[in-house]
Write a protein that binds this DNA or RNA. Structure first.
Lengths: 243, 243
DNA sequence: AAGTGGTCTAGACCACGGC
DNA sequence: CCGTGGTCTAGACCACTTG
C-alpha cells in the first residue's frame, strides 16, 4: 500500500519490485516469482507485469531466461548506467553513488563558429547563447559541460536563466520549445587546457567526450552539447543480456 | 509476400517497415501510417504492430509522438549504433558503412595476471587462453580485441579454435556453455605500444577502451574482453527520444 | 511432463496534440 | 473535437529449460 501514486500501473509494479530487490526480499542472484504469480499477487494483468519486468531487464538489473525464470542480477548495482539516462548527467553521477551538484561557470553571448553554424543550420555570423557548467560528484569536478543555443530562440532575457537546469528544461522554459530527441557521439580525447583547468589531473591524460545534438519537432537541430567526462572517477557502463 | 520467413510476426512487420523506410515509401521526416492502419493493412493485431514499432523506436530510426503520430527520423542513418549491438564488433563496423574482416593475431596459453584471476574468480597461477585479434574496416585496422578464457573451461584442443568467431560462439562451441550477459565499461585511454603497433597513428593519441565482463548462468564470470577502439574512424553513437 | 518466459489476439479506455 | 499513440485486460498458444 503506497501513499504516493505513480503515473502508470506498470510503473507502480516497477517500484514495488525495485523496492523488494533493494531490501533483499528478492536476493541478488536468486530467482524471482514467475510472471503469473506476480500478476495474481499484485492484481494486474500478466501483460502489465511484463512491461514492468521489461523495464528492469533493460537496465540489466534482472536477467530473464525463457523456460527457466527471472533472476536478480548479482553483478549490477542499481547504480549502473544504461542508455536511457546517458544524457541526464545528474542521474549519471548519482547512479555512480555520489551526490551531484552543478556550478555555473559562464553564460555568454557570442558569434557561432563555422562548425556550430553548420550543425545548427545557422547563417555565418549568427549569435549563440553559450553556457559552461561544471558537474561535481561529492564536490569533486567530474564533468565539464558546454551547451550552445541559437540566441534568437531565446524568449526571455539571458540574465534570467537558471544555470542548474537540464538542457531540456532550459529549452522548455526559456525558448518555449520541446527537445524531442538527441544523438550522442562517444569519443576519446586528450584533455585540453580548458578541461584541465576545471577537471584537474595530469596534462595529456585521456577523457571521454560526449558530443550531443539536440533536435526538436520537424527534425530541426536546436542545441549542441559538448561534455568532457572524467572516466577515472565516473563509470560509464552498459549491460547486455541474451537469450 | 516474402520468401524467407522471419521467426516472429513482429519481426516480419519490422522488416516490412524497415524496407519501406529504406526504399523511400516512408520518406525521411514524414509521418508514417497510424498503428491502426498498419494493423489493418498487415492483418496483425495492434499490439504486434506496437512491438515492431517499439523496436524501431529504440534504435532511433523512428520517433513516436503521442497524440500526433510516428515519424521517420531524418537524422539517423540505419547505420547508427545502439546499445543492442555494442558487443558485436562486426555489426558495429558494418553499421558504420564498412566491410568488416577479422585477422587472428595470436592464440596462446599463459598464466593469469592478478587482476584477471580476481575478475574471473580463479586461483593465482591458474592458466588462461588468451586471444588477440584485429578487426578491420575496409581493410583498415580499427579495433584491437583481446579476450581471455580460463583454460580449464576448454573442451577441445586449443589448436582447433576458429579465430574469426564471436566470443559467444567460441564459448558455445569450444566450452559448451552459454554466455548469458555482459557488462561493458567504456573508458578513454592513451594508446599504448601494443595498440599503436596494430592501430597505427600518432603516439599519445586517445582511443576508446571497451572493457567487457562476460557471465554465464549462476552469475559466474566466464570471460573477459579488452577492446581498443579507434574512434577517429568508427563512430559510437547513441540515440535517445523523449515524449 | 510441468512450468517458465515469449508471442499474439481483440477488445477497451485514457492522455495528449493538432485542427 | 477527432485521431493519435500509451496503457491495460483476459485470454490463448508456443518455445524453451529443467526435473
Amino acid at each position: 500500500m503506497s501513499i504516493i501514486q505513480s503515473k502508470t500501473v506498470a510503473h507502480q509494479v516497477d517500484e514495488i519490485l525495485l523496492e523488494r530487490i533493494r531490501d533483499g526480499s528478492y536476493a541478488a542472484g536468486s530467482r524471482m516469482p514467475s510472471e503469473s504469480e506476480l500478476s495474481e499477487e499484485l492484481g494486474v494483468s500478466r501483460a502489465t507485469v511484463r512491461t514492468a519486468l521489461a523495464k528492469l531487464a533493460a537496465t540489466g538489473l534482472i536477467i530473464r531466461k525463457q523456460g527457466d525464470g527471472t533472476y536478480v542480477n548479482a553483478h549490477v548495482r542499481e547504480a549502473s548506467v544504461h542508455t536511457g539516462n546517458l544524457w541526464d548527467l545528474v542521474q549519471l553521477i548519482e547512479g555512480n553513488g555520489y551526490n551531484s551538484s552543478i556550478r555555473s561557470l559562464s553564460i555568454e553571448r557570442r558569434v557561432a563558429t563555422e562548425r556550430e553554424a553548420l550543425a545548427l543550420a545557422l547563417e555565418p555570423g549568427d549569435e549563440l547563447l553559450s553556457m559552461h557548467r561544471l558537474f561535481l560528484a561529492d564536490g569533486q569536478p567530474v564533468i565539464l559541460a558546454n551547451n550552445v543555443i541559437p540566441f534568437n530562440l531565446l524568449r526571455t532575457p539571458m540574465e534570467s536563466i537558471d544555470g542548474e537546469l537540464h538542457i531540456r528544461e532550459i529549452f522548455h522554459r526559456y525558448c518555449h520549445q520541446k527537445i524531442t530527441f538527441a544523438i550522442t557521439d562517444i569519443r576519446s580525447t586528450v584533455m585540453d587546457e580548458q578541461a584541465k583547468e576545471f577537471l584537474g589531473g595530469a596534462a595529456g591524460r585521456a577523457i571521454l567526450q560526449l558530443q550531443v545534438s539536440f533536435y526538436g519537432k520537424n527534425n530541426l537541430p536546436l542545441a549542441l552539447g559538448m561534455n568532457f567526462f572524467d572516466d577515472s572517477i565516473l563509470r560509464l557502463s552498459l549491460v547486455q543480456a541474451w537469450n
